[in-house]
Amino acid sequence: MRVTVKLFATFREGRFKVEEKDLPDSSRVIDVLLPLNITPEEVAICLVNGRDVNEQHVLNDGDTIALFPPVGGG
């Protein structure tokens, strides 16, 4: 399956802004994080199609994953 991975803030440093990834079926968010050298503890906000999920969330073909370190404002 194919998913879109979007990185934000410091996660972009040395990586990318947005990339498409091919993953085996039933992959989880953690399977996206590990090859990027991002630990689940570093992720403050993980959105899949805009909904907040954790690293064990099972992905589907066509999903968009947005990953943020701790950031905020107002």
């Binding site: 934000f8 803030a9 959105l47 943020f68 950031v71 905020g72 404002g73």
Partner: peptide, 16 residues
């Protein structure tokens, strides 16, 4: 987060 990017770091969070 705030020291590095300022409040506008929210643009992507709220948009996504």
């Amino acid at each position: 987060g705030l020291p590095t990017y300022g409040t506008a770091v929210l643009v992507n969070i709220i948009n996504e």
